[in-house]
Amino acid sequence: MEVRTIKVFTTVDNINLHTQVVDMSMTYGQQFGPTYLDGADVTKIKPHNSHEGKTFYVLPNDDTLRVEAFEYYHTTDPSFLGRYMSALNHTKKWKYPQVNGLTSIKWADNNCYLATALLTLQQIELKFNPPALQDAYYRARAGEAANFCALILAYCNKTVGELGDVRETMSYLFQHANLDSCKRVLNVVCKTCGQQQTTLKGVEAVMYMGTLSYEQFKKGVQIPCTCGKQATKYLVQQESPFVMMSAPPAQYELKHGTFTCASEYTGNYQCGHYKHITSKETLYCIDGALLTKSSEYKGPITDVFYKENSYTTTIK
């Protein structure tokens, strides 16, 4: 009895394709271990004539594949690729409408935090270190965002349907971005203890939790000093293409032309909904596939993004 075979390709990165001759009487799992086709788990399936010449994702289970996976995804987590594939199996079914010149995501599976993050990423200057993220990001900007969303979920250790947080998501993504040249110098002034300067680099240099107003941050924000008295913390120097200011959701007025974009969060910790506000020729609110415009805006804002380049204080 002759062994019926077909020729397929296996890959971990969709760049390096490895030619395989597979036995049609055995499952993919018996031949390769966990195997995925377009995100779908085909591990328990036997090869079919229609699979001839198709590319299958496999887990990096030998040295060659491990090197290829690390170079593309910059992670050695053995569960990463499987999590990416199972997320992709959902995100490829989502709709990605162009809204006001940006790629958004039609609401499904509690994905409003991903839509808000995706919209924000198209408006701030950011370059990702893992080629996987950078490639998928370019495709997302062009309207094909399924891979990018699935990668975000995998890097953030999230599953489809789980509630997510924009600030946490951005923080994970910033860790995989090139923020080497970003720098922030802060000064804390206390009447009792004097003053202390701190220099922050990388992710810490672009994120701040405690106030939404970048102007206020430049002037000074009140913080408790270690001595128990009130101290003032203010920005001395900022070198970065953008800054992200966050605070627990509270009524906040966004003035046209003073910011790049913002995240609105309605609801409580267990259950809520994100919308995205962007400042173009007027203010726009993007909620999944829905767009509304207004000249002014007041609502429960939790993150505001500002364009920056270089700032030095005039406070002496």
Rank of each mutant, 00 (worst) to 15 (best):
Arg4Gln: 15
Arg4Leu: 12
Thr5Ala: 13
Lys7Phe: 11
Lys7Trp: 10
Phe9Gln: 13
Phe9Arg: 10
Val12Asn: 09
Asn14Gln: 13
Asn14Ile: 06
Leu17Gly: 06
His18Trp: 06
His18Asn: 09
His18Glu: 10
Thr19Glu: 15
Thr19Leu: 12
Ser25Val: 10
Met26His: 12
Met26Ala: 15
Thr27Leu: 10
Tyr28Glu: 00
Tyr28Asn: 02
Gly29Trp: 09
Gly29Glu: 10
Gln30Thr: 13
Phe32Gly: 06
Phe32Glu: 05
Gly33Val: 05
Gly33Ile: 05
Pro34Leu: 11
Tyr36Glu: 02
Tyr36Ala: 04
Tyr36Arg: 05
Tyr36Asp: 05
Leu37Glu: 14
Leu37Asn: 12
Leu37Asp: 14
Asp38Gln: 12
Gly39Glu: 11
Gly39Cys: 15
Gly39Ser: 14
Ala40Tyr: 14
Asp41Leu: 10
Thr43Gln: 14
Lys44Thr: 14
Lys44Arg: 13
Lys46Met: 15
Pro47Cys: 06
Asn49Gln: 12
Asn49Met: 11
Ser50Leu: 13
His51Met: 08
Gly53Gln: 12
Lys54Gly: 12
Thr55Gly: 06
Thr55Pro: 08
Thr55Leu: 06
Phe56Tyr: 09
Val58Leu: 09
Asn61Lys: 12
Asp63Glu: 14
Asp63Ile: 07
Thr64Asp: 10
Thr64Cys: 15
Leu65Ile: 06
Arg66Pro: 07
Glu68Leu: 06
Ala69Val: 08
Phe70Thr: 08
Phe70Tyr: 10
Glu71Met: 07
Tyr72Val: 06
Tyr72Cys: 07
Tyr73Val: 03
His74Tyr: 05
Thr75Tyr: 06
Thr76Met: 15
Thr76His: 10
Thr76Asp: 13
Pro78Phe: 08
Phe80Arg: 04
Leu81His: 08
Gly82Cys: 14
Arg83Cys: 07
Tyr84Lys: 04
Tyr84Gly: 03
Met85Cys: 07
Ser86Asn: 13
Asn89Phe: 12
Asn89Ala: 12
His90Ala: 13
Lys92Phe: 05
Lys93Phe: 11
Lys95Asn: 09
Tyr96Val: 03
Gln98Lys: 11
Gln98Val: 14
Asn100His: 13
Gly101Ala: 05
Thr103Arg: 06
Ile105Arg: 05
Lys106Glu: 13
Lys106Ser: 11
Trp107Ala: 05
Trp107Glu: 03
Asn111Gly: 00
Leu114Tyr: 04
Ala117Asp: 02
Ala117Arg: 03
Leu119His: 04
Leu121Ser: 07
Leu121Gly: 03
Ile124Asn: 04
Glu125His: 08
Lys127Ser: 13
Pro131Asn: 01
Gln134Gly: 06
Asp135Ser: 09
Tyr137Gly: 02
Tyr138Ala: 14
Tyr138Met: 15
Arg139Phe: 08
Arg139Ser: 13
Ala140Met: 12
Ala140Lys: 04
Ala145Arg: 02
Asn147Lys: 13
Asn147Asp: 14
Ala150Cys: 02
Ile152Met: 10
Leu153Gly: 03
Ala154Glu: 03
Ala154Cys: 06
Tyr155Arg: 02
Cys156Glu: 03
Asn157Phe: 06
Asn157Met: 06
Lys158Ser: 04
Val160Thr: 03
Glu162Tyr: 03
Leu163Glu: 12
Leu163His: 10
Gly164Asp: 03
Asp165Asn: 14
Val166His: 06
Val166Gly: 02
Val166Thr: 06
Arg167Trp: 02
Arg167Cys: 01
Arg167Ala: 05
Glu168Gln: 14
Glu168Asn: 09
Thr169Phe: 02
Thr169Ile: 10
Thr169Asp: 03
Met170Phe: 08
Met170Cys: 09
Ser171Glu: 08
Leu173Arg: 04
Leu173Phe: 02
Phe174Asp: 03
Gln175Cys: 08
Ala177Lys: 03
Ala177Leu: 06
Asn178Arg: 08
Leu179Asn: 00
Asp180Ser: 11
Cys182Thr: 02
Arg184Thr: 05
Arg184His: 02
Val185Ala: 02
Leu186Thr: 14
Leu186Lys: 01
Val188Leu: 09
Val189Ile: 10
Cys190Asp: 00
Lys191Arg: 10
Gly194Met: 03
Gly194Asp: 02
Gln195Lys: 13
Gln196Tyr: 14
Gln196Ala: 11
Gln196Val: 10
Gln197Asp: 07
Gln197Pro: 08
Thr198Met: 14
Thr198Ala: 10
Leu200Pro: 02
Leu200Glu: 08
Lys201Ile: 12
Val203Gln: 08
Val203Leu: 09
Ala205Lys: 03
Val206Tyr: 01
Val206Phe: 02
Tyr208Val: 12
Gly210Ile: 00
Thr211Met: 08
Glu215Thr: 08
Glu215Tyr: 03
Gln216Asn: 10
Gln216His: 12
Lys219Ser: 11
Gly220Cys: 02
Val221Pro: 01
Val221Tyr: 08
Gln222Tyr: 09
Ile223Gln: 09
Pro224Ile: 14
Pro224Asn: 14
Cys225Leu: 01
Cys227Phe: 00
Gly228His: 01
Gly228Ile: 01
Gly228Glu: 03
Lys229Pro: 02
Lys229Ser: 15
Lys229Ala: 13
Lys229Arg: 14
Gln230Asp: 10
Ala231Trp: 00
Thr232Ser: 07
Thr232Glu: 07
Thr232Cys: 07
Tyr234Trp: 09
Val236Arg: 03
Val236His: 06
Val236Ile: 11
Gln237Ala: 14
Glu239Tyr: 09
Phe242Ala: 01
Val243Met: 05
Val243Pro: 00
Val243Gln: 02
Val243Gly: 01
Met244Phe: 02
Met245Thr: 01
Ala247Phe: 01
Pro249Lys: 01
Pro249Tyr: 00
Pro249Met: 02
Ala250Pro: 01
Tyr252Asn: 04
Lys255Ile: 13
His256Thr: 12
Thr258Arg: 09
Phe259Tyr: 00
Thr260Cys: 13
Ala262Pro: 00
Ser263Asn: 14
Tyr265Ala: 00
Tyr265Thr: 00
Gln270Ser: 15
Cys271Thr: 06
Cys271Lys: 09
Cys271Ile: 11
Cys271His: 12
Gly272Asn: 00
Gly272Cys: 00
Tyr274His: 01
Tyr274Met: 02
Ile277Thr: 02
Ser279Ile: 01
Lys280Phe: 11
Glu281Val: 03
Thr282Gly: 15
Thr282Arg: 10
Tyr284Ala: 13
Gly288Ser: 01
Leu290His: 14
Leu290Met: 13
Leu290Ala: 14
Leu291Ser: 15
Thr292Ser: 12
Thr292Cys: 10
Lys293Tyr: 08
Lys293His: 13
Ser294Arg: 11
Glu296Arg: 10
Tyr297Gly: 02
Pro300Cys: 15
Ile301Leu: 07
Ile301Glu: 00
Thr302Cys: 09
Asp303Leu: 04
Phe305Thr: 02
Phe305Lys: 02
Tyr306Val: 01
Glu308Ala: 07
Glu308Ser: 09
Glu308Phe: 08
Glu308Cys: 09
Tyr311Asp: 07
Tyr311Gln: 13
Thr313His: 15
Ile315Gln: 15
Lys316Phe: 15
